[in-house]
């Protein structure tokens, strides 16, 4: 909603986090964002509310207080067992109209990136994608949203001064989850899903959950990725073994995906996913620009390649010259089993 003066602005208060639920479970990004929301709410002298949408999720609502929530707003309905953009938009818009949050933060997941832009348009408010830093302007209390632009080449700080709520998405693993405080308590508010929310919606016919944990690039702390040098689909086995040992995920260059060695869900780069992990280990990836833009914001970049002169080896923090087919298994063997 457009707000024309401070009086209208002051109608909006509290910092909301939209909980991320996958296969019925609250995801860690929710806790990470709760920590950020707590910091923002403390600066604003307001409350943290977490919005929990899904099916059979009510019993998990109480777990969120430990991460800094003051209130949990729950809508629990069979129609939200799987992600249906239209239903969730209607429910969330109604909650926003009713309780008027000042700030709404959501995980930049496939679901968040579908839901929140829709909600932002319907509520006539501003949205900034993939923020890496959120803070309050001490002068006027506005939210300052910082995000990488142009593939991480510039950091842009964005403001939404005359619309409320101010909305942001944040990628998983960018913010640090607070240590849970089991003594904290709060209030659970239940909201209904109405019959009209379920009219004229898409029909979800079939749902398939991948059993392979190594594919979730967004949620990993360590990604080990392979390129053309993996020589074939079997080459990725040594990367999977390493990922399984450290609880990480397996990434791939476009070349490996296009060769059919590994599914597209693993592709990192401009036409795949942008990742921002703690550690990125590039194995035999030469480092075409299109790949680099998708991973150059990772904290620590390690490259392993026979050729010491590739762009990836030059941009890496640690460049290992050698045979990845020997080094990666040796690495895996040297790490104690979890």
């Amino acid at each position: 909603m457009r707000v024309n003066d401070d009086k209208q602005k002051n109608d909006y208060s509290n910092v909301w986090v939209i909980a991320e639920v996958l296969s019925g479970k609250i995801q860690p990004v929710t806790h990470e964002l709760a920590g950020t929301a707590r910091m923002l709410a403390d600066k604003r002298g307001s409350e943290v509310w977490i919005v929990l949408l899904g099916n059979n999720v009510s019993e998990q609502a109480g777990t969120l207080f430990a991460y800094g929530a003051d209130k949990v707003l729950v809508a629990d309905d069979g129609s939200m067992a799987n992600f249906n953009d239209e239903i969730e938009t209607r429910v969330l818009v109604r909650m926003i109209d009713k309780y008027k949050p000042e700030i709404v933060i959501c995980g930049a997941t496939t679901r968040g990136r579908a839901l929140i832009p829709r909600v932002a348009v319907v509520t006539d408010s501003g949205l900034t994608a993939d923020c890496t830093e959120l803070d309050i302007d001490p002068e006027n209390g506005d939210l300052l949203q910082t995000r990488p632009a142009f593939g991480g080449n510039i950091m842009a700080t964005i403001r939404c001064s005359d619309h409320r709520p101010q909305m942001s998405t944040v990628r998983p693993r960018v913010m640090k989850a607070p240590d849970p405080d089991p003594g904290r308590t709060g209030e659970i508010i239940t909201e209904n899903v109405t019959v009209s929310d379920k009219i004229d919606i898409k029909r979800i016919l079939e749902v398939f959950h991948s059993s392979e944990a190594a594919v979730n690039l967004a949620d990993a702390q360590i990604i080990i990725a392979g390129g053309r040098a993996m020589k074939g689909p079997e080459g990725f086995d040594i990367l999977r073994a390493f990922a399984a040992r450290v609880g990480g995920a397996v990434g791939a260059s476009r070349a490996a995906v296009d060769a059919g060695w590994i599914p597209y869900a693993h592709q990192v780069g401009q036409t795949g996913q942008t990742v921002q992990t703690k550690v990125y280990i590039a194995c035999g990836i030469s480092g075409q620009i299109q790949h680099l833009v998708g991973m150059q914001s990772c904290d620590l970049i390690i490259a392993i390649d026979k050729n010491p002169d590739t762009p990836m080896m030059q941009m890496a923090d640690i460049a290992v010259t050698g045979d990845l087919f020997e080094i990666v298994p040796a690495l895996t063997a040297a790490i104690p089993k979890l």
Binding site: L22, S23, N82, F83, T109, T110, R111, K202, R203, I204, L205, E206, V207, F208, H209, S210, N216, A218, D219, Y264, A265
Partner: peptide, 9 residues
């Protein structure tokens, strides 16, 4: 496509 698989709708 989703983080944990896919669905058909």
């Amino acid at each position: 496509m989703h983080e944990d698989g896919y669905d058909i709708c």
